[in-house]
Design a protein around this nucleic acid. Structure first.
Length: 735
DNA sequence: GAGTTTGAAACT
DNA sequence: CAGTTTCAAACTC
């Protein structure tokens, strides 16, 4: 456990100094204050590696970078804190006796460093230790740390937090391997959880709907507000945050308990953790590892956590949340949606959390997946980066773990599978209608995605799971599947090969309208869909009115890039001309078509169509976009990703810019969070689904989120009324 | 659930 | 780059 600590300090200290000295470092710092901070943090903990390593693709977008920076603070802190805490904790533990071994392990120097870190992160909690050079690093952190410190529970929390941290670290170290391996399990579990969520979904949905406002608020708070502010803002939020933060720790604890990493006190919480919890915990741990942000939060949470033992339960939730946060933070940061998502959760009281846990977890899982997936993808692509991170800490190591890859993948797929995502989303929300759920169970599975590959070994893009960057899981009916953690190397290699051939192979297929517009110009804008398929479709017989069409499947209109024949994409024909044709053909026909396809699928309930079937592209878009933004979850997801890349990868833009994005991913993972644009485009169906669901309320937000342009038009009404979302996408025959 | 259709992915 | 084959999802019955 502690083994790493000395090394860490080592690694961290040297690298940092070096980096700082390097011209490059200076240059970077000059670029933006935020970066400077990052650098500092990173230096402190080795997070740097993370920061640097941060998945390129994901971070590619400048926006993301900025956002990240902000989050990077958090994440860094988290890392640092955890490690710090761990150290500090160790010290404390020593005093207490628990951490003795740890303390012993820690060399004086290492201990000092750790203490420094700890002090920086959470001065109160950690006794002020002599700050050395590292203090500088700490200094940068201060604000964030202060926030943590600010946490009311400091006094109390510290110990717990520390313990948890230490435990987490221990657990992490010991478990790192486990994580990698377990990560998948966790993911799967998450998926399962999601499914289970559906059951509880209703409550969750209600919560979500209720909290929607809070979400926005949250997001703003989280992102913008300093930690201190957070504390100031709301105990509840704080608790939430703390929970989130704690999750890792708690998780670690739980993990330890479950895993036998009992080295320490796991006893307190550990026993409680049930199988689910364990799973969830594991997942979180992994996630936490991957997500620095989570870590940061964790620190705070730890402090806050002190309050209650609810943590245990909350921890699980928190873990999930973390994932969400991480996802949001890492990916979107900006996207209010994510935050909102996270926030809502955070806002909830522990009891609420517990109550929600089930629900939230699934979502989270979804989100996490996405987020993770994205990260993972980035990581996968930049595995090296991840490795670098390892130096930092357990968390980093965790990131390295393959799980990350898995997650990333998931996201990708999700993104791609917009339609499914929609369904997934609906599921998430979905909780809503039971009807939806069932049909979606597939989706649920889809959420995780399920494939049915027989000859591709799930190592080709034919495999949705693989294409999405996800590992195949139980729900899959694939044969001779190599897309499993056990074959990680193979998977990664295959991915590389595919990417070498087509760098965008794993990039999101759908691109936002904006991006799109920028690239294509007005035309794209004209198209109804808010987003476009990056490569475009090549449909000849489906008229782009069936899921065979990726554009349609993604819930986006066809673009000039499409080589489709007889395009009648209800989301927007590839050419204005065609649209015109359609339109010209007649609004009526369009309506019919749209209604037939979309409406049928989407709007079953009726009136909706009204809305607007015709939907002028623009109107649709506008409506769509709005929804997206509104859709807490969705909006976030995309923004974050979009900005960063993950979410919305505009395909054309390039994976680099946006990786994630497949519709499905959005939907699946997060209807809430990520769905964003992509989802919007693709999601519509999902939305529709949800909307249909009895829980229209819930749905509405999602709808927004989904925002497929076309959908949205109808969505307006749909949202309010319960529209069946997308037609084909979700349901189906399904129906 | 089996069979067909479809279009992307992969291959040549 | 174009043509063909392979593949698995989407769809139909």
């Amino acid at each position: 456990m502690e083994l790493n600590t000395p090394n860490k300090s080592h690694l961290i200290s040297t690298p940092l100094s070096q980096f700082e000295d390097s011209p490059v470092f200076n240059y970077i710092n000059n670029l933006s204050p935020i970066e400077l901070v990052k650098s500092v943090h990173s230096s402190d903990q080795s997070l740097n590696s993370l920061a640097f390593s941060s998945p390129p693709s994901v971070f590619a977008s400048p926006k993301l970078v900025s956002q990240r920076d902000t989050r990077s603070f958090l994440t860094r802190r988290q890392f640092l804190d955890p490690s710090k805490h761990g150290l500090s904790q160790v010290k404390d533990a020593n005093s207490t006796s628990e951490g003795v071994s740890a303390a012993v392990k820690l060399s004086n120097s290492s201990a000092e460093q750790l203490g420094r870190l700890a002090s920086s992160s959470s001065a109160k909690e950690v006794t002020a230790e002599p700050l050395n050079e590292q203090l500088e690093l700490a200094i940068e952190l201060p604000e964030a740390l202060k926030c943590d410190i600010a946490s009311p529970d400091k006094n109390i929390a510290p110990l717990d937090a520390i313990r948890t941290d230490t435990e987490t670290e221990k657990g992490d170290k010991s478990n790192e391997k486990h994580f990698s391996y377990e990560s998948e399990k966790n993911l799967r579990k998450i998926c399962r959880i999601e499914q289970s969520e559906d059951e509880a979904g209703v409550d969750w949905v209600t919560l979500v709907s209720n909290v929607a406002d809070a979400f926005y608020f949250e997001s703003s708070v989280i992102e913008e507000h300093s930690e201190e502010q957070k504390l100031m803002v709301d105990p509840g939020t704080i608790s939430f945050i703390s929970n989130v933060l704690q999750i890792p720790q708690d998780n670690t604890n739980e993990l330890e308990n479950s895993n036998d990493y009992s080295e320490q006190e796991t006893g307190e919480t550990g026993t409680q953790s049930t199988g689910k919890n364990k799973e969830a915990d594991k997942m979180p741990a992994v996630l936490s590892g991957t997500l620095l942000n989570k870590l940061v939060v964790n620190d705070v949470a730890a402090k806050v956590d002190v309050k209650g033992k609810k943590r245990e339960s909350s921890c699980k939730q928190n873990r999930i949340r973390r994932l969400v946060f991480e996802m949001a933070g890492a990916h979107k940061k900006e996207t209010a949606c994510q935050e909102s998502n996270a926030y809502p959760i955070s806002v909830q009281s522990d009891s609420e959390v517990d109550h929600i846990e089930k629900h939230s977890t699934p979502r989270i899982s979804m989100l996490s997946r996405k987020g993770i997936g994205l990260h993972l993808n980035a990581l996968a692509t930049t595995s090296s980066d991840c490795k670098v991170v390892k130096i930092a800490t357990l968390s980093s190591t965790r990131q390295e773990t393959k799980t990350g890859l898995v997650l990333c993948d998931n996201e990708d797929k999700v993104i791609e599978n917009a339609p499914q995502t929609s369904t997934d989303v609906s599921d998430d929300f979905g909780i809503s209608s039971p009807k939806v759920k069932r049909p979606k169970m597939e989706h649920v599975g889809a959420a995780c995605k399920r494939c049915n590959c027989k000859r591709s070994k799930c190592l080709k893009l034919y495999c949705e799971c693989f294409a999405a960057g996800l590992y195949c899981i139980e729900p899959c009916s694939c044969q001779d599947c190599f897309n499993k953690p056990a074959h990680e190397d193979t998977v990664l290699e295959t991915r590389k090969q595919i990417e070498s051939r087509n760098p965008l192979a794993f990039a999101p297929k759908v691109i936002r309208s904006t991006e799109f517009a920028s690239e294509f110009g007005d035309e794209t804008n004209k198209t109804p869909a808010s987003a476009r398929h990056k490569r475009g479709c090549n449909c000849k017989k489906s008229s782009c009115l069936k899921k065979y069409c990726e554009c349609f499947q993604g819930g986006v209109g066809c673009s000039p890039n499409c080589r489709c024949e007889g395009c009648k994409n209800t989301f927007g024909s590839k050419n204005g001309v065609e649209e015109n044709e359609l339109e010209g053909v007649e609004p009526e026909e369009l309506e019919k078509k749209f209604s037939d396809v979309t409406s049928r699928d989407m709007i079953e309930e009726g009136e909706e169509e009204h809305a607007d079937r015709p939907i002028p592209s623009e109107t649709a878009r506008s409506s769509i976009q709005l929804p997206m933004t509104l859709g807490v979850r969705f909006s976030r997801s995309q923004p974050a990703f979009g900005a960063s890349s993950q979410m919305c990868p505009s395909q054309k833009l390039g994976k680099e810019i946006f990786r994630q994005p497949k519709f499905e991913t959005h939907l699946q993972a997060i209807p809430e969070e990520e769905t964003p644009e992509v989802l919007n485009s693709s999601c519509p169906p999902a939305n529709g689904v949800k909307s249909t669901s009895p829980n229209c309320k819930r749905i509405s937000p999602p709808h927004q989120g989904f925002g497929s342009s076309a959908i949205w038009r109808s969505s307006r009404k749909l949202i309010l009324r319960s529209v069946p979302p997308f037609p084909s996408l979700n349901s189906p025959h399904q129906q």
